[in-house]
């Protein structure tokens, strides 16, 4: 790999297009605009500094998201989240099977769910569930890329996504009434 391949221009070319996604992800993790800005800025600074160790040809997006996530987990908010929610609560449980039902009241509920209600439900997910939902459904990462980002096996990605969606459905079923009377909304 030559020096030109790892130039600041190369970094800029790869990193700038990820800015919106990184900021959105950071805000979802921190629930706070200022902390999200600090997190994104620190991520770019670390990535720029460590770009010489990035192996070209591997997944740059997963590398950047991994830096952001690791930075978050060592931040004050991230450490608090770690202390209050077990990061790997689901891997010890058995296979995830969705409830089989021919009636679809949940389908009707999902059809009526508005964007704000879904956002409130995502907010209430634990950090491991929230991040896997965001990476899969918002960033549209493949399971392999999510596994690289979170540094976990693909099998764990699959089971965590299943559990995260189950938790999200439960929250959506519980939320509509609460949402009606809720007034708080983060920036």
């Amino acid at each position: 790999m030559n020096q030109q391949a790892r130039s600041p221009e190369m970094f800029e070319e790869l990193a700038v297009p990820l800015f919106d996604s990184l900021f959105n992800f950071a805000h979802w993790l921190t629930h706070n605009r200022e902390e999200a800005e600090d997190l994104v800025q620190e991520t770019y600074a670390k990535a720029l500094k460590g770009f010489s160790s990035f192996q070209l040809g591997t997944n740059f997006r997963a590398w950047m998201f991994r830096i952001l996530r690791n930075t978050f987990l060592t931040s004050r908010t991230g450490l608090q989240a770690k202390m209050t929610v077990p990061l790997e609560p689901e891997e010890e449980e058995g296979p995830v099977v969705a409830a089989v039902t021919e009636e679809t009241p949940e389908s009707i509920l999902l059809g009526r769910a508005d964007q704000e209600t879904v956002q409130r439900a995502i907010e209430q997910l634990s950090v491991p569930h929230r991040e896997v939902i965001l990476l899969s459904d918002v960033e549209e990462m493949k399971y392999e890329e999510i596994a690289q980002t979170l540094d976990i096996p693909i099998g764990t990605v699959m089971s965590r996504i299943a559990r995260a969606r189950r938790a999200l459905r439960q929250l959506l079923q519980a939320l509509p009434v609460a949402a009606k009377f809720g007034t708080g909304r983060s920036s």
């Binding site: 800015f19 959105n24 999902l110 964007q115 965001l134 459904d137 969606r165």
Partner: peptide
């Protein structure tokens, strides 16, 4: 449906 909803609702924050 759930994936579509989270896809759209998850793109929430802009710098």
């Amino acid at each position: 449906q759930l994936k579509r909803l989270t896809h759209s609702a998850g793109k929430r924050y802009t710098a």
